[in-house]
Amino acid sequence: MIQHLVDGILTGSIISLGAIGLTLIMHMLRFANFSYAELLGIGAYSALVFDRLLAALIPFMHEKIGPLSLTWTLSVSVVLAMVVTGASAVVLDKLVFKRIRENAGPLSMVFASFGVALILRNIITLAFGHRAQLYSPDIAFAIVVSFDPLLLIKPDQVFVLGAALVLMLMLHVVLTRTTFGYSHRAVAENPDLAQVSGVRLSRMVVSVWVLGGGLSAAAGVFYGLTNQISPHLGHNFVLPVFAATIVGGIGSVYGAVLGGFIVGIASGLSLMILPSGYTPAMPFLIIIAVMLLRPHGLFGEELHR
């Protein structure tokens, strides 16, 4: 019980990070972006590449930090991966989404995002192979927190939870304390008014992709650090991340945080009742429950057609 709960909270923090980026993008660009989760994959794999590169260039930095399996090179790589992923998201927007946005409706955007997701996932497969990989070949030993009930926690998990919370706090400060944050919220609420208030829309679109890409890269690496990375990483997160944004209400950053933890914990606890094969379906059940009980989510505005 307690083990499932703790694992759920950890997964929840990763889903939350991803959901924040998705909810920001969905709120500003008004479409369900099915290619967003592939950015987790791009982030995880670019961190892997940077980590190997840095380890070869500056071997003494390829040292583990304290009890973590995280190395100094990997922690630098996370930041680089966030930048690269943000940039890839901007490039994708320029190549595909911007052009469809200008000529067609939101449904075409949803459709295109599915196509983009399929392309990205399989390019990753071609580049890195089907096989799952690990950042560090060493086994990270879990610490026994308690024997009865049995609770095992890996130091990496504690780090990931902490780092995710720090990122969320940073984003919170940016959104509520800086005019850059105000502009973001302004564009999401009313793009026309934001424009006449001096906000340049094209810049905000770029910045929302950078933010979303950066957050999802962090989520991807954090997942890889506590589990493993495979080309399916993105695909496996599509539904949990959508479920989290729907639970929280599309457009609500705090809703996404809470939604992420709810989805993570519910999926963790479901393991006590259902075989693990059904875990991928959990977010779907949560979405159905939200539709029945509170269609606009915990903090969302009403979004009827």
Binding site: Y182, R185, A186, E189, N190, D192, L193, A194, Q195, V196, S197, G198, V199, R200, L201
Partner: peptide, 23 residues
């Protein structure tokens, strides 16, 4: 470009939705 209005000395007050309610 609407976002350049202010720097030119022009301002515009829309009819409805002319403030950011969530801010």
């Amino acid at each position: 470009r609407p976002d350049q209005m202010a720097s030119l000395g022009l301002a515009y007050v829309p009819q409805t939705d002319n403030i950011f309610r969530s801010l």
